[in-house]
């Protein structure tokens, strides 16, 4: 079992865990933006509580903890790969295109994680009733959370580009 002690084994293992957690996160993000939000106005008013009280809290649980796990596993992966600090500096000075690319992907992912935990979740807590709020405050919270969620949907496209491009850019190290 010597191979289990080698970074060579753990690097792809943590990459796989990071991607699985990322699917949990971005899968729910896209569910909210592609399915739930556009469908809500079409649902009869008396049926909407089924979504808000039952589906939404469950989806938000997997969504926010998927985001947390993706970030933590991503930082571990970057550390195992030996480029954590260089990537956080956007690869400046490394002359390594892969580190430039993963650095941009990491920062976009960090911004998205911040949006989840510090904008979307505090506002959604008002929507699902975990935080007490007046009906006006609930409407404002729903709008703010929705806009931050849309920003994350927009950022998920360049984020995934940079993340996937980095380890597959074979010419990047000599670019």
């Amino acid at each position: 079992m010597d191979f289990l002690a080698q970074a060579d084994f753990w690097r792809p293992f943590f990459r796989w865990l990071h991607v699985v957690a990322g699917i949990m996160w971005i899968g729910h993000l896209w569910y909210f933006n592609f399915t739930q939000t556009p469908t809500m106005p079409k649902i009869p008013t008396e049926l909407r509580p089924a979504v808000v009280r039952y589906i939404l809290p469950e989806a938000l649980f997997w969504f926010r903890w998927g985001a947390m796990l993706t970030l933590i596993l991503g930082l571990i992966l970057a550390w195992l790969n030996g480029y954590l600090l260089d990537a956080l500096k956007l690869g400046i000075g490394t002359h390594n295109g892969r580190i430039v690319a993963i650095g941009w992907g990491m920062w976009l992912g960090i911004i998205m994680w911040f949006n989840v935990w510090f904008i979307i979740w505090p506002n959604q807590k008002k929507v699902i009733g975990l935080t007490s709020a007046t009906p006006d405050e609930v409407n404002a919270a729903r709008r703010t959370a929705g806009l931050a969620s849309r920003v994350n949907t927009m950022l998920s496209i360049p984020m995934s580009y940079a993340m996937i491009f980095a380890p597959h850019w074979y010419g990047g190290m000599t670019a």
Binding site: N33, L90, G91, V100, R150, A162
Partner: peptide, 30 residues
């Protein structure tokens, strides 16, 4: 900005436009 974000498809197109810009920036910085 808010009207763009209220439209799902405009948001997605904006994401792809940002991706093209990012690809150029990454290539230039590499």
């Amino acid at each position: 900005m808010e009207s763009l974000l209220n439209n799902l498809w405009a948001t997605i197109i904006a994401g792809f436009v940002l991706t093209v810009i990012l690809a150029i920036v990454i290539r230039a910085m590499a």
